[in-house]
Simulated assay, not measured.
Amino acid sequence: MRTRSPFWRDARALAVLAQVLVVVIVALALAGAMATLRRSFIRQNIHLDWSVLRQPAGFDLSALQWTVDLDTLRIKRYEPTDSNAEAIIAGLINTIQVAVMGIVLATLLGVVAGVARLSQNWLVGRMALGYVEALRNTPLLVQLFFWYFGIFLQLPDGSSSHPPLRLLGSLVTLTNSGLAVGGTRVERFGRLVAEGGYQLTPELAALVIGLAVYTSAFIAEIVRGGIQTVSRGQMEAARSLGLTYRQGLRLIVLPQAFRIIIPPLGNQFLNLTKNSSLALGIGYAELLTAANTVSSQSFRSLEAFTVVTVAYLMVSLVISAGLNLIRRRLATS
């Protein structure tokens, strides 16, 4: 008859016991921290008052466009008579807008720069290296100031003496009033402006481009590293089948590299989303700006910034979940 070994010699039992102990210790630490925080609140006569979120906001920030009516749960235009919670939601919508546009643009620029880093052309490779090093080694806030004050505010004003810049066959119009994609050009007060289409204010355009360009430098190195982890034999096999270098890169190498680089790529997406809070420096109202305004007017900083913390956490978890889903699908394809 086989005797059962004592639990202190069972590796599985010890592993379970260790996990239980860790959970108990963390729970006790959290309970102690909450008790200390509660005593501190009582001692300083601080009381959480979440009713501040239902009070009228009473402020109007030009960048706050859309929010959610908490009574009907419908999208509507933001107005100063809306509640503080709806003002924070308007800022959250702006943050999500910046994150989506920035992630798409940063990924495109990063992939191009990462591939260029491995180019056999000496000039292309050195230019890509300079692009990456210059952007990675300068502060993001300085770059945002450069794009806003040094680029967008210095663009033509659209007058007859300073006509707007037109790119891509007049598809994109650039003035110091912002960037417009599509739409029609009409004259307003002696200036040509875009009417209709998709328009970005100079603050929003500078923020999106600044975040995307800065993050693309890090993504470029991630892409370069991912490509180099793929065996050289893959490209050699592609060339032996008659594929060009670009075809082999697009059809063979990059799909394999993307499976490897998704985790570090996700980190950069999260960094870009959180870095959008620097919009406060160039006057664009996003989640942090809206919450800061609510805090300064209601003097309820703890409640406002608790909501901001939870909002950033939820957005980050959604991005992480989406990338994990993509990674699993790529792994099974």
Rank of each mutant, 00 (worst) to 15 (best):
L123Q: 06
A33P: 06
N45M: 02
W50R: 04
A57H: 07
V111R: 02
I103W: 01
N84G: 06
I25F: 14
S51K: 14
A33E: 13
S51H: 13
Y131D: 11
L73S: 06
T72V: 06
M101P: 03
A57V: 06
L28C: 12
T72Q: 05
T81N: 02
V16Y: 09
L30W: 11
D60N: 05
I96A: 14
A15V: 07
Y78A: 11
L14Y: 08
I25K: 01
W66S: 02
V26H: 09
P80H: 04
F59E: 04
L129S: 12
V52Y: 14
I103G: 04
A33Q: 13
R126P: 02
A18S: 11
A29T: 09
T36W: 12
D60V: 01
L105H: 06
L48A: 10
E86L: 02
M127Y: 12
A106H: 02
S62K: 08
V23C: 08
R38I: 00
A31C: 08
L129T: 10
L109E: 03
A18M: 11
S40A: 15
G58D: 11
E133T: 13
S83T: 15
V68I: 15
V111K: 01
R126G: 00
P80W: 01
Y131C: 09
D49N: 13
K76G: 00
A85W: 09
Y131T: 11
V98Y: 06
D82S: 04
L108D: 03
R126L: 07
L30I: 15
N121K: 10
R54N: 13
S119F: 00
L21A: 15
M101E: 08
Q19M: 12
A35I: 06
N84E: 05
V26W: 11
V52E: 05
V112G: 00
A15L: 12
A31L: 13
V132Y: 05
S83L: 04
L61Y: 01
T107R: 01
A57E: 03
V124E: 07
R54A: 12
V23W: 12
W50Y: 08
I46H: 09
A18G: 13
T81H: 05
I42N: 10
A27V: 14
A85L: 15
A15W: 03
A106G: 00
R77M: 07
V98F: 00
L92W: 02
L92S: 14
